[in-house]
Amino acid sequence: MSVEIRIDPILCRGHAICALFFSDGVDLDQWGFGKVAVAVVDAPRDIRRARRAAAACPNGAFIVRERSQDLANAPARPHPESSQPVA
């Protein structure tokens, strides 16, 4: 299993708490705003850390998403000719 992590830059207020829990996965800039260093995490220990960081973020800016929900892993596209627009 792997998860995808994102930081919503609009919600992020630079508390930098995510970096306490998951320092390898987050790059902090000089103001403490986080940028995600590794977007996809698959080591179980890192997934645990990412989830803790998400739970600790006071603004809910740290997002962890199961990759299986991701578009990239969605079932193959039907052929465009066969997809009818919704009326």
Binding site: P9, I10, C12, R13, G14, D29, W31, F33, K35
Partner: peptide, 9 residues
Amino acid sequence: GQCGTCVAG
């Protein structure tokens, strides 16, 4: 004026 690094940087 929404994202911190843009506002500060």
